[in-house]
Design a protein around this nucleic acid. Sequence first.
RNA 1: GCUUCCGUGGUGAAAUGGAUAUCAUGACGGUCUUCGGAACCGUUGUUCUAGGUUCGAAUCCUAGCGGAAGCACCA
Length: 582
Amino acid sequence: MNSYEIIKSKLEEITGKDVNFSLSQPEDLLHGDYATNAAFIISKIEKTTPLLSAENLIPKLQESLKDIVEKIEVAGPGFINFFLKDEIIREENKKSETKIMTKYTGKNILVEHSSPNLFKPFHIGHLMNNIVGEFVTRATKEGGANVTTLSFPSDISLGIAKAVYILQKDGGLSKQTFNELHSGEFTHQTEVINYLGECYVRGVGLSENNPELEAEIKDIAKTLYTEIESGQLNNSAGYQLWNNVRHVNTVYFEYVLESIGSKLGKTIFESEVAKVGKDIVLKNTPAIFTEGERGAIIYIPDEDRKDLNTSVFINSEGHPTYEAKDIGLIEKKFTEYGIVDESLFITDNEQVHHFKIVLDAGSKLGGEWPDRIAKSKHIPHGRMLFKGAKMSSRLGDVPLALDVIGVVEEEVRERAGEKIAHLTEEEKKKLERDIALSALRIAVLRSKPGLNINFDPETSLSFEGDSGPYLMYTHARCSSLLEKGIDILPIWSNDIEVTNLEKELLHFERELICVCEELAPQKLVTYLFSIAQLFNAYYASTQIIVEGDDIGNAHRLMIVKRTKKVLKKGLYVLGIEAPEKM
RNA sequence: GCUUCCGUGGUGAAAUGGAUAUCAUGACGGUCUUCGGAACCGUUGUUCUAGGUUCGAAUCCUAGCGGAAGCACCA
């Protein structure tokens, strides 16, 4: 048991089970290492004042905690502050190696994120999604879960049929181009990807008041759905084109993921679940779904669910919409991935409404469905909005992920200049990429997921103060010190006064548990900044390695070592590389 | 119109109902013959409005104002 658990259990013992107090780390170190509000709650039950209750508690607490606590004080309106003994703080920093236990420990978790549209380039929204998704993946893994990651690429829809139509009209891409792309020669890659994206946009913009055109597009959609659903591919021209584009973009998608340091385990294509979803909906019509206008199959939520609205699951053409496909996706997730304890899926917050409807409809399907829905959890993230002139002028309306990273890399290059001149070209490139990604990741993960974030490169992307590079730099600084003291064996000494840095380091494991369970990256970011700040302040005021001071050197290097470890682990969970040098 | 989410210094953010609301940036002023200045120290400045609940409210409730998103055959 660590000090937190000991204090907590003693408090429970003394106050009784029905007192639901909190025990937390005070914001100000002057208020001790832990603080509790127990006196407020007791005073309410006993009808006295918080101060009196607190003073009653203190002698009992002092007696039972005398081994670990230096002093216990009443403060402010009735808080009880605990100040740990120096040797206890040190002892806990020393043995803080163990793996953390969380509610995810031993659980099988599915994490779905970074789902691309296979007919559109990977843009800024996908990047944002990947940053959050990668965090959720690493946080649940860190929390002890057995995590399967997967993406759910969109590859079949009316919009895609429109894109295919445009492509056909343009004469498609030459066979040679596809062959080159298949064989991994990416000379035309950007061009081709941009062209395909352009086709999609042109398709969406097609005139709606042209019945002939509409019929033609519906026909393409029908052919695609039919060939895919039946599994009997006639290999129509449309299908071949569709399949080629799909393949090219899949390769591109994997390439982008790799370049941002992410990887996904499995893929479920939208086209794979279309029929599954459709069949489930049809099987439950008219019990749960009903027939709407023009023969569409719709879902009408209960009257008291004012936040939901009627929506179409199968359209009048007989094709499943996104809603039905998501039902199919849930079916697949829970039948093909063994035992699933929780299924997390990460999307843009525009889809909050959509998933509420899908989950509500799903919960009524009977059998295993209510259980599946209870285990399904939608994690929405916000949008990245641009403010600065710099980004919008260079990137246009919907910036591509790689272009955004490119712009940030340029900033890094400008900034880094001669500092990294000694590195080889390859090392430089990797470092520039890592620094750029760290800046972007911190810009996203410092806020609560779900809110839109304003992305102004002039400020959000600063490389000073609260920023990714600042954390990386601090880590590199630790490495460099340990390198300098390579001949010294770091070891704790009890004769040196405990620093504020050590007091803060003490809370890392508890903080990490909280971050993993609540999937709250902003808490980890805030914590890491406080560690980096305390460390840099310590570094500025204290010489770490002093000629002739063996015990002091060993002790101070131990503090450096622990700091480095905390930074490295924290950065890892956020998806950021911690370099030895930068 | 209905529904949902949001409103914190000039800017971007943090804060299980808890103490004097935290951090960065900006601006201004400092630190350096020291192990990495992408650093450190100081000054400046904040909870949309009006009620309510509470020992205690940025947080919960009500009303208003402001912003964003969603609302039947797109994903």
